[in-house]
Amino acid sequence: MISYPMAVGAVTTRVLEAGGGDQVVVLVHGTGGRADRWVRNVDALAAAGFHVYAMDLPGHGFASKGPGVACSVPAYRAFLAAFIDAIGAAKPVIVGTSLGGHVVASYACEQPERVRAIALVGSMGLVPIGDEARGRIQAGANNQTRDGVRTKMQRVIFDPALVTPEMLEEEWRINNSPGALESFATLGQYIATDLDKEVVGEQLARAPFPVLLVWGEQDKTVPPAVGEKVRALLPHSRLALLADAAHTAYYERADDFNAVLVDFLAERAGQTPRDGVRWS
């Protein structure tokens, strides 16, 4: 895996890349995250034969941030489209988690001919999540104190042993870097007021490409009941529920997540039983 900066239009981002060939997988993080949230997935997916990319969304990580940087699902959808063009991916698999799932689903609905398949992990934006959840996410985005960072990470990760002092220190430093608080405030306001106005579940139900849904059974941010509801809405989808995982199932249960994604793309979803993985 290599890491490097890239200009995507007017935005500078940080990219993680591994593998090669024309089977491209693009990984999109969620609110307050960044490309290296996928550090347990990039090399493993590359070893399975994919050319894998992860990048920082504007306002996050090492990407451009601060006043004048647009932070919303429409802005991120346009950024994702420009990034896919920049890497020359004709028809990638696109994976998104949380708000990143909303971005991926929105892009895929807008440009279905540019998508091989999508995978959505604890995704927002498929059905409305309601005022309370939107307000809670906004509050979390705006609270980048050390206590706020600790509370968030303990909520989105089920196993407390994974929430290390080093993780918390890095999270706090990056999310308090120049321009970050302004970008989180912009994104938080968007989530509170507009997120549920742009749900795409019904559009996605008419899409021509397959959809993988992955949920942690302990997800408190977007509960697994949402995944079950979306699975019923999307006739061309499969849902994998991962035990002992919360909102970051791709990180907490990385080996299982990687295997689930590879099996899904090989059209053998659920054919190989794995402890703690339940398909529907």
Rank of each mutant, 00 (worst) to 15 (best):
V222W: 02
A119L: 11
E166M: 08
G49F: 14
P74K: 05
H51D: 08
P74R: 05
A48M: 11
D275I: 01
G33K: 02
A254I: 06
G88M: 07
V163H: 12
F257V: 00
R173W: 09
F264W: 12
E171S: 11
D147R: 15
L195T: 01
E182A: 13
G276E: 06
A7W: 08
A161E: 15
S3K: 06
M167Y: 08
L57V: 06
G61N: 07
G66A: 11
A141P: 05
R37L: 14
D256W: 13
T272Q: 15
V211Y: 13
Q111C: 12
P178E: 06
R114D: 03
V52E: 04
A108G: 03
A259G: 08
M6C: 06
F50Q: 01
H29D: 08
A225Y: 10
P5E: 15
P210Y: 09
D219P: 01
D22Y: 06
A70H: 09
W38T: 00
G201Q: 14
A161M: 12
P92F: 15
K65G: 04
A78M: 10
L120I: 02
G122F: 15
G125S: 10
A246K: 02
V28A: 04
A44Q: 14
M167H: 07
A75K: 03
N142V: 00
P160F: 11
D244Y: 12
S98K: 10
L204P: 05
D275C: 02
N175D: 15
S123L: 14
A63V: 03
G101T: 03
H236A: 10
R116G: 01
V211M: 14
L187G: 01
A86L: 12
R146C: 03
V262F: 08
T97M: 15
E170G: 06
P165V: 05
L126Q: 04
A54E: 09
A48W: 09
R146H: 09
N143A: 09
P128L: 07
A89N: 01
L80I: 02
V69R: 07
